[in-house]
Design a protein around this nucleic acid. Structure first.
Lengths: 197, 197
DNA sequence: TAGCTTGTTGAGCGTTGCTCAGCAAGCCGG
DNA sequence: CCGGCTTGCTGAGCAACGCTCAACAAGCTA
């Protein structure tokens, strides 16, 4: 019985910013394996090597933590979709679409889990992703040179639902070539948004 | 102090079938007000005037109860969408579409809560609604006289996502007339499913 | 060394999903 | 009327989880 009662394994003391980032990062890693709703604070804390209490020090509530993780995931995708500067406007939508498909291809499980978690469950969490969709609609309508009215907004949002569903299932079971998928998505969007023009 | 210590208010003894039906019914009533995930067994039991334990007697687990409620909701909608016997096949899809919009109009909040709960959160619960969507795809493709291959199935499922989103937001903010909505939905479906024919 | 800031913890409370042993309501044969 | 059976039903209680709170300790500065 010479060992110390509780040998601190690696109880490192981190800066507030580091800790927050670490915890959000852990959430992002756990997202694909675990539905965000059943992700317990305990599991995250254990994985970070800290106590539950500390997590509540950084995120006042479980919901706050989840929204932070969801926002981080949404920001990652948003950054990836941004057009490279210098791209001519008429190619920007096609480029974003292409990058979106690439994103889903690369992070298949993660992205599906993310959309599921963001779509259902907690409304606060859902709002985070809804926000990103709104930003995407604005970009789409702007680069297409179309007015941003309520009708078109509704149509583009519904088209997003269509695109997310189709790309998701296509990634699981590719029933057509990649260019065909892109052309189909683009075609449906154009027909929807150019109606009555 | 003449009153009995615990006057049984209406502790009626019901048959197993009655009790099950009552509990599912309560779930359906609570669905619109409460996201299915935060619906607690306690609340349902209190509302039914029974103990928590009894609910676990009929539904072994919370998930089992939720799926039962979700299945009941899905069955209600499914029954409402069925074409009246004697309807000519070429009008059946239009009729189902019309009834679907009517369903969303009538049970706006309930239906939105239902789709949200079924889409996100628990995968088991999600499967119940996915099943209904599968049945709808089969009916749609059959009455349209189209082969039921993987590609078309994907397209129609994605179109469902589109339709659900659009009808949902349209019910909140009607940006076009009802016939216009129906025509739009029908047109998008036709163009999708008749491609390469 | 004293003192301050601040990252960190353990004990503990209330709720919730779930279990289990047993009560009690109705119905039967005697 | 009574013992015994089935079965709807309950209360106490456990474990897990979200969350709180008072206090410890690591690192810095004076």
């Amino acid at each position: 019985m010479t060992a110390s009662p509780t040998p601190p394994p690696s109880r490192s003391r981190r800066s507030a910013g580091d800790r927050r980032a670490q915890l959000v990062q852990i959430g992002l890693e756990l997202l694909p394996t675990t539905p965000i709703q059943e992700l317990t604070i305990d599991a995250v804390a254990r994985r970070a090597g800290i106590s539950r209490s500390l997590l509540f020090h950084y995120f006042a509530t479980k919901r706050e933590y989840y929204t932070a993780v969801t926002r981080a995931a949404a920001d990652l995708m948003w950054a990836h979709l941004q057009p490279r500067p210098g791209t001519p406007p008429e190619e920007q939508v096609a480029g974003m679409l292409d990058r979106y498909v690439g994103w889903v291809e690369t992070y298949r499980e993660s992205h599906l889990a993310f959309v599921r978690g963001a779509g259902g469950g907690d409304p606060w969490v859902a709002d985070v992703y809804a926000e990103t969709r709104q930003r995407l609609v604005e970009v789409a309508l702007t680069t297409l040179g179309l007015p941003d009215d309520a009708l078109r907004r509704q149509l583009v949002l519904a088209w997003f639902a269509f695109a997310e569903d189709l790309v998701g299932s296509w990634a699981d079971q590719p029933t057509m070539s990649r260019p065909e998928l892109l052309a189909l998505l683009r075609d449906v969007l154009d027909r929807l948004v150019l109606r009555g023009r």
